[in-house]
Structure formats: C-alpha cells, structure tokens
Design a protein around this nucleic acid. Structure first.
Lengths: 338, 338
DNA sequence: CTGTTAGCGCCTTCAT
DNA sequence: ATGAAGGCGCTAACAG
C-alpha cells in the first residue's frame, strides 16, 4: 500500500503534483472541475499533508510553544486552556515545556527551541531567572515571544499581565481595614516582576495607613510546600504580633493555612489571611480564605491572540501591544473555562 | 548573514555536508580531530539543526501528543507533569490537545494528528465518546497509542489505569462501615471505563452488606458544575433518606459539598461524603471531605515510559504491557511532583 | 575516514 | 489551467 501523498494523488488522477498541491490549497488558478476531482480522491484516500515537509519548505511550523513553571497550578492550567483554545481555532499546535521554576531548565528549553521548531512562544519566566541572555538569543533567532504574568522586561515585546500593584494595594488595605496592624507579606521571589509589583502595592497601603514598612515581615518562599510551611510557622511563632498575612501566590496562602493548623491558630479569628488564588474551589471549601483571582483563562487567550496575530502578519510584536487585565477581589468562583 | 545550517558549516570547514552531519551525530566513522573542528564551529555559530528537515527525512518526529479532556484538573495536570518529565529526559517534545469532553473535538483532533506529526500519543478519552472509529483509523495510520485512566478497549494497545473497582468497593465500604444505609453514587458517564469499574465496586460493596442496589440513587453528572450541583441538590432534597455519597470524580465531590451548603446539610454529621480527588489541598482545607487519590504523576510517567520505549524499539505496544497502579485512600497530601 | 548522490514531501517560480 | 524543475535542510546508501 503506497503512502498517500501528493505524488500518489497526482498519479491516480493523471495530474502533476503541482496541480494537486494547488487544488488542495484552493488556488484560483485551478479549474473548479479539477479541484473537485482532487478533493474527492483526497477525501477518499484520507490524504493528510505531511506537515513537516510543509514546514521545511515554507519555514513556518504552525506551532507555538508554551513555557511555564508548572502546570499543576490553577493559574497556569487555566491559561493553557485559553491558549489551546485560540491555537486550535487558528489551526496551530501547542508544544508545552515546564521549567519547574528552575533557571537551568529554562535555559535548556530555550536552546531546545532555537532552530525553528516554533513560530512563536508564550512564556512565564521561572522564579529563579535573573539573567535573560538565553531569551534574548532565542528572540533574536526568530520566534515571536509574548510574556504573560511573569514578565521579562529585557526583551522588546508585549506582556499580558494583571493589575498587580493595585491588587497588592487592595489586598493589604483589606487587612488593614479589618483591623490588622502587623501585616506580613509572603512572596515567591523578589526577582519576579509580579512579586515586585504586588509588594509595592503592599508598601503603598502600609504607608497610606501610616504604618512602617518592616522588611522582617516579608518572607520569600522559594522552596517546596513543606519548607515554606515551616518557614511561615517559624515567622508566626517568632512574631506573635502578626495579625494579618498577605500571600502573593496561592501556594503560600495554603502553606499559611497549614502553618496555622500546626500552631493552633484560627483563621480569621487569630489571623486574617488574604492570598492570590485561582483555586476557586479551595476558597469555596474554606470561606476563611479570602482570595484575589486573576482572569487566567482570559490572560491565556489574550496572549495567544497577540502572538498569533503577529505571526500571521509577520510583524514584530511591540511593547505597546501589551495588555493589563484586572484581577477580581473576593470572587465567588474560579474563572469559567469558556 | 547566512543561515547556520550544515551547508554553511561544511563550507567554512572545507568539508562535505555529509561529514559534518556525521560528526555532529558522533558517528564512529569520523576522525576525532574532524569531529572536534566541527563541534567547535557549530558551537561558535550556535548551530541548531532544523528538526523539521530531520523529521521529514527520517520519518520520525521526536514528538508525542497528549490528548485529554481538560488540563484544569489536578489529575490531568499532574499526569502532564509526569509525561513532560519523561519526554524531556528522552529529548521528546510534547504537543497538547484538549477535548473538553467533547466527542466532536476528539475526532477533529485525531484527524489533525493523522499525518505523522507525532510518533506516539497518550490519551484519556472524552466522556462523550462512544464510538472509536476515529481512534482505530488513527492507530492504523501510524502512531503508537497508550491510554491512561480513561481507556478505550477497542484498540489493541496498552492501558495505564488504577484499581478502580477496588477503590469503588473500598469507598463504598467506608461509608457503610460509618453507618450509612442509603448511599448515592455520582459518576460522570456510564460510557467511561473508569465509571463502570467504580460503579461495579460500589455495587459489590452494597451486595456484600446485604443492601439492594437502587439505580435511582445513581446520578450521572455530565453537565457543568452549576448544573451538577443543582442535580445533586434535587436528589438530596427528594430523597432525604440518603446518608452517604460516593462521588466518582473530584468535581462531583465538590458539587456535593456545594449542594449541601444550599440545603444547610452538614458534612459529615448529616451526610457522609467520599470522593475521588487529586486536589490534595482541598481535602486538607476541608477535612470533612474524605478522598481517594490516584497516583496521577506516576500514571503520567508510566504511560509515557511505555510509549517512548515502544517508539524507540519500533515495536507495537501490546495489551500485556498494561499497568495498574493503586489509588490511595484518605491520603494526607496530593502526589508530589517529583 | 570522507565525498557524492539521491531523495523525504511539499511549495513555488517559470514556462507553456 | 497545467506541468516541469528546483530546492527547503537533512540523512543514508554507496563509493572510494
């Protein structure tokens, strides 16, 4: 059984390969009758073009890559959901790579990607990344890049983010208004743009309330969950005056909850907690956890849309195309998927 | 600036393209000195092979596809985590496709994949899929397929599953031993293998306890979360004798919880609930939710390992290579990622 | 050990 | 409206 390719179709129809190719692309310079004949046989034999050949020839892969820290996280899951949606609508394929917050892996992956495998890239940088030579090299090599959530400012391209400064400010104010006077702040990494923005919001709210900024109340939780939980427990034990916690990511909010369990602290009676979270259900299951939810699905859609549009138009992406979406305070539900 | 390809390297080194190619593949029939010269220049120019050309020529793409219902779900997220891990270790790329439990999409995706874009496929079928002609056609066309969790028996290949019958039995027994006499069962779809197995375990436990199987206590929740929650609330309202619920998937367990809230029922005082869940944190955040956790990460690793091994050896996958892993009852944590 | 040659399947001038 | 021919970048068989 011969493989079903253009050659085979051409032979069976007594046409040239070129004509068959054109017919399948619905070229205007092929007669309607011929088109019909070609299409009929293609359907009958279930012809599928070899996309690798096409990619090689046209230097376009119809594939985008998604590079994120992890997928086991509602924010990124929902974002992928949005990305995949847009990709499929435009007949693009989605390759996925996980950095696990590890700089080395991120570098390895970007190298892996230099070489035309993808037409574009959607990326949220790892918390350990401080240096961006690998991204610059990649960007120079070809693919368009759009950052979402965790941004890299060193590249001349668009970002899709949320109003992190404002959210940090509002979250902190929420605690202050509830009567807190010693608010701790938990963040993943001071390297990350989102961490910095949220922290600035936190500082602004404190300042506005006439409270001092105490950097010993700021904790950076970069390890695994158990480690972070222990760190938080230590902090709470050492500083009993802490009456509020603003967790800048979901996992730290949960670790805070667990730390409170071990210390027999009740939320929100003993300690008020507010945290970023896209795990809508967790908030529902435990109303004591106050949350800020990012529109993750929309972020994914938005980022993918900008990327694909730029690819199709073969135009570089400009920073001016960046988009800032709004997070939702105290949401009742996680973002729906469609 | 010329593109950096084999031709370019060959010219600059006064070698033939073939020799350069061989040198980069560390072929034994190239002198060490030449290899070194080639490697040095390749590194200097940051040469990256064009993988599409290579794929075209060798008819191997070093890419696998993952087709799953959704990613915004801890089970699948963790599975992807495991899959990506194994793939990267073996220098494979991972394409991802979401069916959203929709049969039509599943068919469209499989057609999309017929044509050599992937060497293999990892798949968990959509709940709406009852007919598997699309999968058989795909399988016949080329790529190796391994099913995980939601299996398709119609294909002659391996599955990676968990001990669903046993888990269903144990979950139901857990409720019976806690004194329940009217245990409802919630499942996604009677079409799915996992649904059937878990239900059989449920029935076996009832039978063993001398209780009748009442199919009006079995609810199939195929809609969205709000819809399911309403269905469950209706059931609980109409049948106040229900004192236990066995939810066969996480989302239904959560919907049960929400339904109880609207009815002012307390778990576990008024109603005992046990559910499959990979959302370890949710269970931690609400200890009233008793859970069964599948080793999702290991399932992903296992499935990917079987698939890649078969691809590398160019051997068909046999049903005898199937693996059954064990779910964990009442776990303290979700499966770690590494 | 190295080079020459012939494609993989597809697209795209250029010619008719 | 159709065909012939060349080449995308790489690999593999065959020479030497």
């Amino acid at each position: 059984m011969n493989p079903v390719n253009l050659k085979r179709l051409a032979q069976e129809l007594n046409l040239s390969i070129a004509t068959v190719s054109r017919a399948l692309q619905d070229s205007y310079e092929v007669s309607p009758q011929t088109k019909e004949r070609v299409r009929a046989l293609a359907a009958e034999l279930d012809y599928r073009p070899n996309e690798y050949a096409s990619s090689l020839r046209r230097n376009i892969s119809k594939t985008i890559g998604v590079v994120i820290p992890e997928v086991n996280n509602h924010f990124f899951s929902l974002a992928i959901n949005g990305i995949e949606e847009v990709a499929r609508q435009n007949d693009y394929h989605v390759l996925i790579y996980l950095t696990h917050e590890d700089f080395e892996r991120e570098v390895a992956i970007t190298q892996y990607l230099t070489g035309g495998r993808v037409d574009g890239l959607l990326m949220s940088v790892a918390s350990g990344s401080q240096e961006f030579g690998h991204l610059q090299k990649l960007h120079a090599s070809k693919p368009a890049i759009v950052f979402f959530d965790r941004v890299c400012d060193a590249l001349q391209t668009a970002h899709v983010t949320t109003n992190d400064y404002e959210s940090g400010y509002q979250a902190t104010r929420h605690l202050l208004e509830a009567g807190c006077r010693h608010v701790a702040h938990l963040l993943v990494s001071g390297n990350l743009s989102i961490g910095r923005m949220r922290m600035q919001g936190y500082q602004a709210a404190l300042q506005e309330a006439g409270l001092p900024f105490d950097d010993t109340l700021v904790l950076s939780g970069e390890g695994d969950d158990d480690h972070n939980t222990a760190l938080i427990a230590n902090l709470l034990r050492a500083r009993p005056e802490i009456d509020g916690v603003f967790a800048s990511v979901e996992r730290l909010a949960i670790s805070t909850y667990l730390a409170c369990q071990t210390l027999n602290l009740t939320i929100p009676a003993d300690l008020k907690v507010i945290g970023f979270s896209n795990l809508g259900v967790a908030a529902l299951l435990n109303p004591a956890l106050t949350t800020i939810t990012q529109p993750a699905y929309e972020i994914g859609r938005e980022a993918a849309t900008i990327l694909l549009r730029a690819i199709e138009k073969k135009r570089p992406i400009l920073p001016t195309q960046s988009v800032v979406l709004k997070s939702e305070l105290f949401p009742r539900r996680s973002t729906a998927r469609e």
